[in-house]
Design a binder for these strands. Sequence first.
DNA 1: GCCAACGTTGGC
DNA 2: GCCAACGTTGGC
Length: 154
Amino acid sequence: MSEKYWLLKTEPETFSIDDLKNSPKKTTTWEGVRNYQARNMIRDEMSRGDLVFIYHSVKDPGIAGIGKIVREGYPDHFAWDPTHKYFDPKTKQESPTWFMIDVQLVKKFRSPLSLSFLREQPGLEGMELLRKGSRLSVQPVRKKEWDLIVDLAE
DNA sequence: GCCAACGTTGGC
DNA sequence: GCCAACGTTGGC
């Protein structure tokens, strides 16, 4: 069973790779995904040990580094907290709608790979991230794309 | 700030 | 089940 590769989006003004770096054990919960397609990947497909790119969206968009899934999908309890911004009144404790994972920092890139730089790279044309209108906050990454990007970062 | 792309909601 | 209206995401 080989590890799989993913990309996780975050808005750095909400939670950045530096926040992850400064977290205890460099590990954080990754909650708040409220999209069914992304939920399905978190709940059904991600495994402990899979690697993820940490992608910063909106402000200086680009891949900032690498993380590792250290806990597989489990119910996102923030959905049941009425005071929390991720509260979802429609989901029930008996049948959780939303799931979260725990992610540990593996490395922060010396300099992030910007979206515009990635667009220029031969071999990445088919990447979900680069598709016009791509909004998924959790995306699968092909092994060849993963390897190419890791090479570019070094 | 603009706006294209996309997901969700709700009337019918 | 269709689809218009609306809200959100996110690049630029």
